[in-house]
Computed example of a mutant assay.
Amino acid sequence: MTRLEIYDHFHPDEKAFVDRAWEWVERAAERHETKRTDFLDPRQAHILFTLANRAPDAQVLLVGGSEQAERKRALIAPDYRSLEQEDAGIAVLDISSDDRRISELDHGDYLGALLGLGIKRDKIGDLHVSDEGCHALIAEEIGDFLVGHMKQAHRVDVSVSIRPLSELRESKIALEEQTISVASMRLDGIASDVFRMSRTKILAPIKAGRCRVSWKPVEDPSHPLKAGDVVSMKGFGRFKVIDVEGVSKSGRIRVRIGKFV
């Protein structure tokens, strides 16, 4: 399959990642090289596996630090290598504070503090937030930098240290559930209800490329959603279509939504 034929299977915005992933796969299959990637989101992991399936001499292993991890590092290698014992290079950044306001911080506060230090998003895995602070999964190579430079999270003084994966304090994903009634499963209709915006106002971020459905860029407001889809809108938040519960006598669809909090 040619490179152009590969592009046909993916969104144009994904071209740069497809190019990198295909190079990783080719190097593993043809040059017998092993590659450890940064953290990938589920869509990027899907693309990588799709490409690796076209190269029978390459294999991929994903490691996220926990069973339910959303973001994972990938190990790409020739098919004869054993990857189970390979080091994925993931550490736990323990962020804590003596300030009682630490219990009020959320996922966005911690992520913003990390990115504010110039750390790229792909060096950070899942964040496990609790009342005591946050355990952030990070690429081990940035650990020393963060220990030396991270002093605050949303105006709360913090201290940070590096822990082994065995000490990870996992937190369950919190979803604020609601049931909405919609005329159709269109993206714009459901998103406007969830984010409590008019249908007119929700069109702009979608058409501007700020929306992803199950981590895939979607710019079509009429894109149909289905159970299991995760919708993220930059600047607004994320929600999951938990279930489509049926159709009322008036023909409207009952949809159970979980908004990430």
Rank of each mutant, 00 (worst) to 15 (best):
R3L: 14
L4C: 08
E5C: 13
E5M: 14
H11R: 09
K15Y: 13
W22F: 13
V25H: 02
R31D: 15
F39W: 11
L40V: 05
Q44W: 01
L51D: 00
A52M: 00
R54T: 03
A58Q: 03
L62N: 00
L62G: 01
V63L: 07
S66C: 09
A69R: 04
Q85K: 13
A88T: 05
I90Y: 10
I95D: 00
I95S: 01
D99Y: 08
L105P: 00
H107S: 03
H107G: 02
L111N: 10
L111P: 03
G112W: 12
G112L: 09
L115I: 15
K123G: 05
K123N: 04
L127G: 00
A136T: 06
G143A: 06
L146D: 01
Q152G: 08
H154L: 07
S161M: 13
E167C: 02
L168M: 07
R169K: 12
R169W: 03
K172N: 04
K172V: 01
A174I: 15
Q178L: 15
I180N: 10
V182R: 14
A183E: 13
A183K: 14
L187D: 06
D188C: 14
G189M: 08
I190Q: 04
R196F: 12
K201Q: 07
I202C: 14
K207C: 15
K216Q: 11
P217E: 00
H223D: 11
M233R: 05
K240H: 02
I242C: 15
I242G: 15
G246A: 02
K249C: 13
R252T: 06
R254H: 14
I257F: 03
G258H: 01
